[in-house]
């Protein structure tokens, strides 16, 4: 099964804490990445720029409403995600706990809805 690990955290702290190595990642994240790849569980992932760079769009009655900022103003913000392969939720939760973000933020684990591709 595929799961998404959604990384939430206080982005002010997250940005301040990042020590960039030549990999462009902090040592903790680099290690976590390597572990996912070695285990054959890595399906993808991205780090997002802070919510100050976000724009939100909705269309109601054919009228587009464009707003600065993220969809929801929350104490912790979505900062990135991993897409992983795991046999079951327990295994996915293991990965979530190993994710550096669990230490200072929150990791939400959501199963992927399989879509039949044409």
């Amino acid at each position: 099964m595929q799961y998404m690990l959604l990384i939430y955290g206080d982005e002010a702290k997250m940005n301040a804490a990042t020590e960039v190595e030549d990999t462009g990642m902090s040592p903790d994240y680099h290690a976590f990445n390597q572990a996912l790849i070695k285990a054959g569980a890595m399906r993808g992932g991205e780090r997002l720029r802070p919510t100050s760079a976000a724009t939100s769009v909705r269309v109601r009655d054919q009228k587009a409403v464009i707003l600065d900022g993220p969809y929801a103003d929350t104490q912790e913000q979505l900062g990135g995600y991993y897409l992983i392969e795991a046999d079951d939720l327990d295994k996915a939760l293991e990965w979530a706990k190993a994710c550096p973000a669990a230490q200072f933020g929150t990791v939400e684990v959501r199963p992927i809805w399989p879509i039949r591709r044409q």
């Binding site: 780090r47 997002l48 720029r49 919510t51 976000a54 939100s56 769009v57 909705r58 993220p70 969809y71």
Partner: peptide, 8 residues
């Protein structure tokens, strides 16, 4: 809503 976030 669609939230647009540049990727780092």
């Amino acid at each position: 809503s669609i939230e647009i976030r540049p990727v780092y």
